[in-house]
Simulated assay, not measured.
Amino acid sequence: MNRSEDGRSGVPPRPRAGEAARRSRPRAGESAGSRPRAGDSERPRAGDLAGVGAAMSADAPASGAHRSAGSRGAPRSSVPRPDPGQPLTATWDPPAETDLDHEGFVATYGWRAYAIPVLAILTVVLLVLTVRGGSADGSADKPSPDEGRDTQVAKESAPVGAPTVQIAEAALPVGALPPGGHFTRQAKKSFHVVPVKTSKKIGRGAQEYTYTVEVEDGLIATDFSGDNAFATMVDATLANRHSWIGGGKVSFKRVGAGQSPNLRISLTSTNTARELCGYQIKLESSCFYPPTNQVLLNEARWVRGAISFDGDIHSYRQYQINHEVGHGIGYAQHEPCKQNGKLAPIMMQQSFGVRNKDIMGLDPQMDANPALSCKPNPWPFP
Protein backbone atom coordinates (compact mmCIF):
# COMPACT_ATOMS: atom_id res chain seq x y z
CA MET A 1 0.00 0.00 0.00
CA ASN A 2 1.39 3.33 -0.94
CA ARG A 3 1.14 6.58 1.07
CA SER A 4 -1.72 8.03 -1.00
CA GLU A 5 -3.78 4.91 -0.49
CA ASP A 6 -3.38 5.21 3.28
CA GLY A 7 -4.73 8.75 3.09
CA ARG A 8 -7.79 7.72 1.09
CA SER A 9 -8.67 4.89 3.41
CA GLY A 10 -9.01 7.28 6.38
CA VAL A 11 -6.01 5.88 8.20
CA PRO A 12 -3.64 8.69 9.30
CA PRO A 13 -0.33 8.54 7.47
CA ARG A 14 2.50 6.99 9.36
CA PRO A 15 5.40 9.43 9.99
CA ARG A 16 8.57 8.73 8.20
CA ALA A 17 11.67 7.77 10.13
CA GLY A 18 13.28 10.83 11.71
CA GLU A 19 10.27 13.07 11.07
CA ALA A 20 9.29 13.24 14.76
CA ALA A 21 12.71 14.51 15.73
CA ARG A 22 12.72 17.11 13.02
CA ARG A 23 9.29 18.36 14.03
CA SER A 24 10.47 18.79 17.61
CA ARG A 25 13.00 21.51 16.70
CA PRO A 26 12.09 25.02 15.42
CA ARG A 27 12.65 25.82 11.80
CA ALA A 28 14.83 28.78 10.74
CA GLY A 29 12.95 32.03 11.29
CA GLU A 30 10.56 30.71 13.92
CA SER A 31 10.27 32.97 16.96
CA ALA A 32 11.55 31.88 20.34
CA GLY A 33 8.04 32.13 21.69
CA SER A 34 6.95 29.08 19.64
CA ARG A 35 9.40 26.81 21.46
CA PRO A 36 8.10 24.63 24.31
CA ARG A 37 9.33 25.93 27.61
CA ALA A 38 10.73 23.91 30.48
CA GLY A 39 7.80 22.45 32.39
CA ASP A 40 5.26 22.66 29.44
CA SER A 41 3.01 19.69 28.93
CA GLU A 42 4.33 19.31 25.38
CA ARG A 43 7.90 18.61 26.52
CA PRO A 44 8.88 15.09 25.39
CA ARG A 45 9.11 12.47 28.10
CA ALA A 46 11.93 9.98 28.48
CA GLY A 47 10.00 7.33 26.53
CA ASP A 48 9.41 9.75 23.68
CA LEU A 49 13.11 10.55 23.41
CA ALA A 50 13.91 6.88 23.15
CA GLY A 51 11.53 6.62 20.23
CA VAL A 52 13.06 9.64 18.60
CA GLY A 53 16.49 8.08 18.92
CA ALA A 54 15.31 4.91 17.25
CA ALA A 55 13.71 6.86 14.43
CA MET A 56 16.85 8.88 13.81
CA SER A 57 18.89 5.68 13.76
CA ALA A 58 16.62 4.29 11.08
CA ASP A 59 16.89 7.48 9.09
CA ALA A 60 20.71 7.52 9.14
CA PRO A 61 21.32 6.21 5.58
CA ALA A 62 19.03 8.86 4.11
CA SER A 63 21.05 11.62 5.72
CA GLY A 64 24.38 10.39 4.52
CA ALA A 65 24.57 13.24 2.04
CA HIS A 66 25.41 15.57 4.88
CA ARG A 67 28.65 13.72 5.58
CA SER A 68 31.90 14.62 3.89
CA ALA A 69 33.27 12.53 1.08
CA GLY A 70 35.97 11.11 3.32
CA SER A 71 33.45 9.73 5.80
CA ARG A 72 30.95 8.36 3.26
CA GLY A 73 29.77 4.91 4.27
CA ALA A 74 30.78 5.18 7.94
CA PRO A 75 28.01 4.40 10.43
CA ARG A 76 26.37 7.51 11.92
CA SER A 77 25.85 7.95 15.63
CA SER A 78 22.29 7.46 16.81
CA VAL A 79 22.52 10.19 19.51
CA PRO A 80 19.30 12.21 19.25
CA ARG A 81 19.32 15.96 18.85
CA PRO A 82 18.30 17.62 22.11
CA ASP A 83 15.06 19.55 22.35
CA PRO A 84 16.01 23.26 21.98
CA GLY A 85 13.59 24.12 24.77
CA GLN A 86 15.64 22.23 27.33
CA PRO A 87 17.96 24.07 29.78
CA LEU A 88 21.64 24.44 28.86
CA THR A 89 21.07 23.49 25.22
CA ALA A 90 21.65 25.46 22.05
CA THR A 91 19.68 25.26 18.82
CA TRP A 92 21.15 23.06 16.15
CA ASP A 93 20.15 25.35 13.31
CA PRO A 94 21.20 29.02 13.35
CA PRO A 95 18.25 31.44 13.50
CA ALA A 96 17.41 33.18 10.28
CA GLU A 97 18.43 36.83 9.95
CA THR A 98 15.58 39.18 10.76
CA ASP A 99 15.13 42.92 10.66
CA LEU A 100 14.05 44.18 14.11
CA ASP A 101 11.88 47.25 14.17
CA HIS A 102 11.79 49.55 17.21
CA GLU A 103 9.17 47.49 19.04
CA GLY A 104 10.97 44.26 18.26
CA PHE A 105 14.29 45.71 19.45
CA VAL A 106 12.78 46.81 22.76
CA ALA A 107 10.94 43.49 23.15
CA THR A 108 14.19 41.60 22.57
CA TYR A 109 16.56 43.64 24.75
CA GLY A 110 14.19 45.12 27.34
CA TRP A 111 15.68 47.82 29.62
CA ARG A 112 19.07 47.41 27.92
CA ALA A 113 17.61 49.06 24.83
CA TYR A 114 17.42 52.31 26.79
CA ALA A 115 20.58 51.82 28.91
CA ILE A 116 22.92 51.65 25.90
CA PRO A 117 22.33 55.23 24.62
CA VAL A 118 22.37 56.62 28.18
CA LEU A 119 25.77 55.02 28.87
CA ALA A 120 27.10 56.34 25.57
CA ILE A 121 26.10 59.91 26.52
CA LEU A 122 27.67 59.60 29.99
CA THR A 123 30.91 58.33 28.43
CA VAL A 124 31.11 61.37 26.15
CA VAL A 125 30.46 63.73 29.09
CA LEU A 126 33.21 62.16 31.20
CA LEU A 127 35.67 62.36 28.30
CA VAL A 128 34.92 66.07 27.86
CA LEU A 129 35.41 66.73 31.59
CA THR A 130 38.72 64.86 31.55
CA VAL A 131 40.07 66.74 28.55
CA ARG A 132 38.96 70.12 29.87
CA GLY A 133 40.35 69.44 33.35
CA GLY A 134 37.03 69.98 35.09
CA SER A 135 35.43 67.76 37.69
CA ALA A 136 32.06 66.16 38.10
CA ASP A 137 31.17 68.04 41.30
CA GLY A 138 30.35 71.24 39.41
CA SER A 139 33.64 73.02 40.01
CA ALA A 140 34.80 75.74 37.65
CA ASP A 141 36.86 74.68 34.63
CA LYS A 142 39.65 77.13 35.49
CA PRO A 143 39.41 78.09 39.16
CA SER A 144 43.08 79.09 39.25
CA PRO A 145 44.48 82.27 37.70
CA ASP A 146 45.75 81.72 34.18
CA GLU A 147 46.80 85.26 33.28
CA GLY A 148 48.60 88.19 34.84
CA ARG A 149 51.43 86.33 36.57
CA ASP A 150 54.17 88.76 37.58
CA THR A 151 57.44 86.87 37.35
CA GLN A 152 59.26 89.87 38.87
CA VAL A 153 57.24 89.82 42.08
CA ALA A 154 60.35 89.01 44.11
CA LYS A 155 61.62 92.53 43.42
CA GLU A 156 58.75 94.10 45.35
CA SER A 157 59.59 95.77 48.65
CA ALA A 158 56.20 95.41 50.32
CA PRO A 159 54.43 92.21 51.41
CA VAL A 160 52.30 90.57 48.74
CA GLY A 161 48.87 89.31 49.70
CA ALA A 162 48.58 91.25 52.95
CA PRO A 163 45.46 93.40 53.56
CA THR A 164 46.09 97.05 52.71
CA VAL A 165 43.09 98.73 54.35
CA GLN A 166 41.93 99.30 57.89
CA ILE A 167 38.90 97.16 58.73
CA ALA A 168 37.34 96.55 62.11
CA GLU A 169 37.51 92.95 63.27
CA ALA A 170 33.74 92.88 63.79
CA ALA A 171 33.27 93.57 60.07
CA LEU A 172 34.89 90.22 59.19
CA PRO A 173 33.26 87.67 61.51
CA VAL A 174 34.11 84.71 59.25
CA GLY A 175 37.79 85.71 59.37
CA ALA A 176 38.08 85.23 63.12
CA LEU A 177 40.48 82.54 64.30
CA PRO A 178 38.57 79.38 65.29
CA PRO A 179 39.11 77.86 68.74
CA GLY A 180 41.69 75.10 68.89
CA GLY A 181 45.21 74.17 69.88
CA HIS A 182 48.04 76.22 71.32
CA PHE A 183 50.32 78.35 69.13
CA THR A 184 53.28 80.65 69.83
CA ARG A 185 52.63 84.37 69.73
CA GLN A 186 56.23 85.57 69.99
CA ALA A 187 59.28 83.61 68.80
CA LYS A 188 62.86 84.63 68.03
CA LYS A 189 62.52 86.05 64.47
CA SER A 190 65.32 83.78 63.28
CA PHE A 191 64.80 80.66 61.20
CA HIS A 192 66.43 77.28 60.72
CA VAL A 193 66.25 75.19 57.55
CA VAL A 194 64.73 71.72 57.84
CA PRO A 195 67.29 69.27 56.37
CA VAL A 196 66.42 67.59 53.07
CA LYS A 197 67.60 64.06 52.27
CA THR A 198 67.17 64.15 48.50
CA SER A 199 66.74 67.06 46.14
CA LYS A 200 64.77 66.41 42.99
CA LYS A 201 62.69 68.41 40.58
CA ILE A 202 58.91 68.06 40.74
CA GLY A 203 56.77 69.06 37.78
CA ARG A 204 57.71 69.68 34.15
CA GLY A 205 57.29 73.45 33.93
CA ALA A 206 60.10 75.37 32.30
CA GLN A 207 60.41 77.89 35.13
CA GLU A 208 61.91 76.13 38.12
CA TYR A 209 61.57 77.52 41.63
CA THR A 210 63.94 76.25 44.29
CA TYR A 211 62.69 76.35 47.86
CA THR A 212 63.68 75.63 51.42
CA VAL A 213 61.41 74.61 54.28
CA GLU A 214 62.11 76.65 57.41
CA VAL A 215 60.75 76.99 60.94
CA GLU A 216 61.10 80.01 63.17
CA ASP A 217 63.28 79.41 66.20
CA GLY A 218 61.26 79.36 69.40
CA LEU A 219 58.16 77.59 68.10
CA ILE A 220 57.02 74.60 70.19
CA ALA A 221 57.32 71.45 68.12
CA THR A 222 54.33 69.71 69.72
CA ASP A 223 52.05 72.57 68.65
CA PHE A 224 52.60 71.95 64.91
CA SER A 225 53.75 68.29 65.04
CA GLY A 226 57.44 69.14 64.49
CA ASP A 227 59.79 70.17 61.71
CA ASN A 228 59.65 66.95 59.71
CA ALA A 229 55.86 66.81 59.69
CA PHE A 230 55.70 70.43 58.49
CA ALA A 231 58.27 69.78 55.74
CA THR A 232 56.49 66.62 54.62
CA MET A 233 53.23 68.50 54.29
CA VAL A 234 54.85 71.24 52.21
CA ASP A 235 56.60 68.76 49.90
CA ALA A 236 53.51 66.60 49.40
CA THR A 237 51.32 69.61 48.65
CA LEU A 238 53.63 71.10 46.02
CA ALA A 239 54.19 67.70 44.41
CA ASN A 240 50.46 67.07 44.01
CA ARG A 241 49.22 67.28 40.42
CA HIS A 242 46.40 69.58 41.60
CA SER A 243 48.94 72.09 42.89
CA TRP A 244 50.85 74.64 40.80
CA ILE A 245 52.73 72.04 38.77
CA GLY A 246 49.37 71.01 37.31
CA GLY A 247 49.37 74.10 35.09
CA GLY A 248 52.54 73.03 33.30
CA LYS A 249 54.21 76.44 33.71
CA VAL A 250 56.32 75.96 36.83
CA SER A 251 58.28 73.27 38.62
CA PHE A 252 59.79 73.08 42.10
CA LYS A 253 62.94 71.70 43.66
CA ARG A 254 63.62 71.62 47.37
CA VAL A 255 67.16 72.48 48.47
CA GLY A 256 69.00 72.46 51.76
CA ALA A 257 70.77 75.05 53.87
CA GLY A 258 73.49 77.18 52.29
CA GLN A 259 71.61 77.59 49.01
CA SER A 260 69.96 80.72 47.63
CA PRO A 261 66.37 79.54 47.11
CA ASN A 262 63.72 81.42 45.19
CA LEU A 263 61.24 80.72 47.97
CA ARG A 264 61.74 80.23 51.71
CA ILE A 265 58.58 78.53 52.91
CA SER A 266 58.58 79.47 56.59
CA LEU A 267 56.34 78.63 59.54
CA THR A 268 56.25 81.75 61.71
CA SER A 269 54.91 82.91 65.04
CA THR A 270 51.90 85.21 65.16
CA ASN A 271 53.82 88.39 65.98
CA THR A 272 56.47 87.77 63.33
CA ALA A 273 53.74 87.31 60.72
CA ARG A 274 52.07 90.54 61.88
CA GLU A 275 55.36 92.42 61.71
CA LEU A 276 56.25 91.32 58.19
CA CYS A 277 52.79 90.96 56.65
CA GLY A 278 51.12 93.88 58.40
CA TYR A 279 48.29 94.02 60.89
CA GLN A 280 45.92 96.56 59.41
CA ILE A 281 43.05 94.19 60.08
CA LYS A 282 43.10 92.56 63.47
CA LEU A 283 42.95 89.06 62.07
CA GLU A 284 45.63 86.40 61.65
CA SER A 285 46.98 86.32 58.09
CA SER A 286 49.91 85.03 56.04
CA CYS A 287 51.74 86.52 53.06
CA PHE A 288 54.72 86.47 50.71
CA TYR A 289 57.49 88.83 51.82
CA PRO A 290 59.73 89.62 48.79
CA PRO A 291 62.67 91.31 50.61
CA THR A 292 63.58 87.95 52.17
CA ASN A 293 61.85 85.67 49.60
CA GLN A 294 59.79 84.24 52.44
CA VAL A 295 56.44 82.54 52.08
CA LEU A 296 55.26 83.29 55.61
CA LEU A 297 52.74 80.79 57.03
CA ASN A 298 51.19 82.02 60.26
CA GLU A 299 51.38 79.25 62.87
CA ALA A 300 48.07 80.34 64.40
CA ARG A 301 46.32 79.52 61.12
CA TRP A 302 48.39 76.36 60.64
CA VAL A 303 47.17 75.04 63.98
CA ARG A 304 43.56 76.24 63.91
CA GLY A 305 42.62 76.75 60.28
CA ALA A 306 39.71 78.95 59.22
CA ILE A 307 35.98 79.06 59.89
CA SER A 308 35.24 78.75 56.18
CA PHE A 309 36.90 75.30 56.09
CA ASP A 310 34.61 74.05 58.86
CA GLY A 311 37.26 72.26 60.91
CA ASP A 312 39.09 70.63 57.98
CA ILE A 313 42.62 71.51 59.14
CA HIS A 314 44.35 69.29 56.59
CA SER A 315 42.66 70.96 53.61
CA TYR A 316 43.23 74.39 55.08
CA ARG A 317 46.98 73.75 55.37
CA GLN A 318 47.05 72.74 51.71
CA TYR A 319 45.23 75.95 50.87
CA GLN A 320 47.60 78.02 53.04
CA ILE A 321 50.64 76.61 51.22
CA ASN A 322 49.20 76.88 47.72
CA HIS A 323 47.75 80.37 48.20
CA GLU A 324 50.92 81.95 49.61
CA VAL A 325 53.21 80.11 47.19
CA GLY A 326 50.89 81.45 44.48
CA HIS A 327 51.84 84.96 45.56
CA GLY A 328 55.49 83.93 45.55
CA ILE A 329 55.42 82.74 41.94
CA GLY A 330 53.72 85.89 40.68
CA TYR A 331 49.98 85.78 41.35
CA ALA A 332 49.83 88.97 43.35
CA GLN A 333 46.13 89.78 42.94
CA HIS A 334 43.31 88.20 44.89
CA GLU A 335 40.25 86.86 43.16
CA PRO A 336 36.57 86.74 44.09
CA CYS A 337 34.10 83.89 43.85
CA LYS A 338 33.26 83.65 40.14
CA GLN A 339 30.39 81.16 40.02
CA ASN A 340 27.82 80.58 42.71
CA GLY A 341 28.18 77.20 44.41
CA LYS A 342 31.44 76.32 42.63
CA LEU A 343 34.88 75.77 44.12
CA ALA A 344 36.56 78.97 45.21
CA PRO A 345 39.60 80.15 43.20
CA ILE A 346 42.85 79.38 45.00
CA MET A 347 43.73 83.08 45.04
CA MET A 348 40.52 83.99 46.85
CA GLN A 349 41.12 85.03 50.48
CA GLN A 350 39.43 81.96 51.86
CA SER A 351 40.89 82.51 55.33
CA PHE A 352 38.38 85.34 55.67
CA GLY A 353 35.44 83.66 53.89
CA VAL A 354 34.23 82.12 50.66
CA ARG A 355 31.38 84.58 50.09
CA ASN A 356 32.17 87.69 48.12
CA LYS A 357 30.38 89.91 50.58
CA ASP A 358 32.76 88.66 53.31
CA ILE A 359 35.98 89.53 51.48
CA MET A 360 35.19 92.49 49.23
CA GLY A 361 36.07 94.98 51.94
CA LEU A 362 39.66 93.69 51.94
CA ASP A 363 40.17 94.67 48.29
CA PRO A 364 38.20 97.83 47.49
CA GLN A 365 39.23 97.64 43.81
CA MET A 366 37.83 94.12 43.39
CA ASP A 367 35.07 93.81 40.82
CA ALA A 368 32.76 91.13 42.17
CA ASN A 369 29.12 90.21 42.66
CA PRO A 370 28.47 90.31 46.42
CA ALA A 371 25.69 87.74 46.10
CA LEU A 372 28.00 84.93 44.96
CA SER A 373 29.21 82.25 47.36
CA CYS A 374 31.75 79.48 46.69
CA LYS A 375 32.89 76.28 48.36
CA PRO A 376 36.30 76.09 50.07
CA ASN A 377 39.04 74.77 47.80
CA PRO A 378 42.73 74.14 48.58
CA TRP A 379 43.98 73.57 44.99
CA PRO A 380 44.92 75.68 41.96
CA PHE A 381 43.85 72.85 39.63
CA PRO A 382 41.24 70.74 41.47
Rank of each mutant, 00 (worst) to 15 (best):
V11F: 09
P13F: 05
A17F: 10
A20L: 13
G29F: 07
G33Y: 05
G47E: 11
G53F: 01
A55T: 08
A60N: 06
A60L: 01
A60I: 03
A65C: 02
H66L: 14
R67Q: 11
R67E: 11
A90G: 11
W92T: 13
W111H: 14
W111A: 15
P117C: 06
L119F: 13
T123C: 08
T123G: 14
V128F: 09
L129M: 09
L129V: 15
T130D: 11
G134M: 03
D146W: 10
K155S: 15
P159W: 01
V160I: 15
T164Q: 15
Q166C: 00
Q166T: 12
A170V: 10
G181V: 09
H182F: 08
S190K: 11
F191I: 08
H192C: 05
K197H: 12
G205V: 10
Q207R: 14
Q207F: 12
Q207C: 01
T210D: 10
V215D: 07
A221T: 12
T222Q: 14
A231W: 03
T232K: 13
R241N: 09
H242V: 02
W244T: 06
F252L: 02
R254K: 11
V255A: 07
G256L: 04
P261N: 12
N262I: 05
R264T: 06
S269K: 04
T270P: 00
T270S: 13
A273V: 07
R274A: 14
E275V: 13
E275G: 14
E275T: 15
L276V: 08
C277R: 02
Y279P: 00
Q280E: 13
C287H: 05
P290N: 03
L296W: 05
L297W: 00
L297C: 03
W302H: 02
F309C: 04
S315W: 02
V325W: 01
A332G: 06
H334K: 07
K342C: 09
K342P: 00
P345T: 04
P345F: 12
M348R: 02
K357T: 07
D358R: 01
P364C: 01
M366L: 15
D367K: 14
A371K: 12
N377Q: 10
